[in-house]
Simulated scan of single mutants.
Amino acid sequence: MKKVLVSLAVVFVLLAAAGVGAFWWVEQAAHQAVAAPGATPVEFTVPKGTSGRGLGVLLANQGLIRDARVWRWHLFRRGSFSPKAGRHPVSPSMTVAELATVLEGNPLPDDIPFLVVEGWRLRDTDAALTAAGFITAGAYITAASNPSRFTAPFPLPTTTLEGYLYPESYGVIPGKFDVEDLIQRQLNAFGERFYTPNRDAISKSGRTLHEVVVMASMLEREEPVPDQRPLVAGILWKRVDKGYPLGVDATSRYVLAQWNDRKAFLQRLRDPEDPYNTRHRKGLPPGPIGAPTVASLQAAMAPTPSEFWYYLHDAQKTLRPSRNAEEHEALRRKYNVY
């Protein structure tokens, strides 16, 4: 009997020792990350309907924890745990406790980037949104043709928001896309990027905001190098102020279904009745011809004065300004630009 009791005592001690050892191992593992600090962040997705305990296997499979049992032990010690379904930014450098905290936080938004390219017209953005499956054709143009539905810290035109919808990348959620929400965000971006920080400078420029936007939309298409746009703006404003036609061919492309349709473009150039034909008509065109960036807006607001009246670009897109028609024609012949 005594031997039996001794044997049981030995077993008990061994089990207790094993339990203490297991407890120590789990505790240590719960406070140690899989990787050293600075490991590359990754995204971990909490599937909808997955229990907190069930995440242990997924975390282990993705190499974020060493053992699912460590995760279950932490949740037991932690008590309540309410993970949120979706994508979460995590790292192998995080401890189990840190991972649990992140997974209870708000997941990353389910949006994807949609790029509005600089210089795009309303019709170009509408076509891109349609091709991406976000809208039915024409929905963007229709919404942007009703400025009264939107707000801005600057005066909005009455008929169309062409030129005021800032070109940059916007996050959109497939299946939950709201065309008016995108337009309002573009107006907000226009205000934040250009209008608000330049409000006083615009008022001192001698031009209205709308005139600045119209000029900037031409600069966006006319001059590929942002640093050269102030000089081009100075030439164009001088021609406007002195009553000379601008001669900006990009304006004649504005109404084309396809911007690079050369045949249709040449027809527009020969039409003196086209209000956008700035070879024949003096002054600014009737409205903006696309979406300008801050670089173009600032150039239109603060042009660089010069002795030049004309300009062209050679085959390498280098700006070649000239002081008079004779110099301009000589540059045409020299660089074969017609």
Rank of each mutant, 00 (worst) to 15 (best):
325 A>S: 14
127 A>K: 10
214 V>H: 02
289 I>V: 12
331 L>K: 12
139 A>N: 00
55 L>W: 03
111 D>P: 04
39 A>Y: 10
303 P>D: 08
77 R>H: 02
156 L>S: 08
223 E>T: 05
123 R>V: 12
49 G>S: 07
255 V>C: 08
143 A>N: 04
254 Y>G: 05
175 G>F: 14
248 V>K: 00
149 R>A: 13
168 E>L: 08
29 A>H: 02
203 S>Q: 15
106 N>M: 08
42 V>I: 12
23 F>V: 04
45 T>V: 15
306 S>W: 09
242 K>C: 07
148 S>E: 13
246 L>R: 05
239 R>K: 12
306 S>P: 13
118 E>A: 15
226 P>I: 00
128 A>I: 01
175 G>L: 11
333 R>Y: 05
291 A>D: 12
275 P>S: 12
40 T>A: 07
94 M>D: 06
249 D>G: 05
212 V>W: 06
43 E>Q: 08
47 P>A: 06
267 Q>R: 14
271 D>Y: 13
300 A>E: 09
39 A>I: 13
132 A>V: 12
123 R>A: 15
54 G>D: 05
294 V>C: 01
208 T>C: 09
29 A>N: 06
189 A>S: 14
297 L>K: 09
322 S>F: 07
100 A>L: 02
271 D>L: 15
37 P>W: 05
208 T>N: 11
244 Y>K: 13
249 D>P: 03
52 G>H: 03
193 R>G: 02
11 V>W: 01
313 H>V: 13
285 P>A: 11
32 Q>C: 03
84 K>H: 12
253 R>K: 15
311 Y>S: 08
299 A>E: 02
49 G>Q: 07
89 P>R: 13
281 R>G: 02
193 R>Y: 08
308 F>K: 07
267 Q>D: 11
265 F>N: 04
76 F>C: 06
96 V>L: 00
32 Q>M: 03
317 K>S: 15
127 A>F: 06
206 G>R: 04
72 R>L: 01
333 R>W: 03
285 P>T: 15
82 S>W: 02
18 A>W: 10
33 A>P: 04
244 Y>A: 14
246 L>P: 08
210 H>M: 05
266 L>R: 11
301 M>W: 00
131 A>T: 14
131 A>G: 01
205 S>F: 12
198 N>Q: 15
199 R>H: 13
8 L>V: 09
216 A>D: 05
25 W>D: 02
299 A>R: 01
35 A>P: 10
124 D>S: 09
187 L>I: 05
56 G>S: 07
16 A>G: 13
232 V>R: 03
297 L>M: 08
319 L>F: 08
307 E>C: 09
208 T>F: 07
24 W>V: 14
33 A>K: 02
200 D>Q: 06
335 Y>G: 01
159 T>D: 13
16 A>T: 14
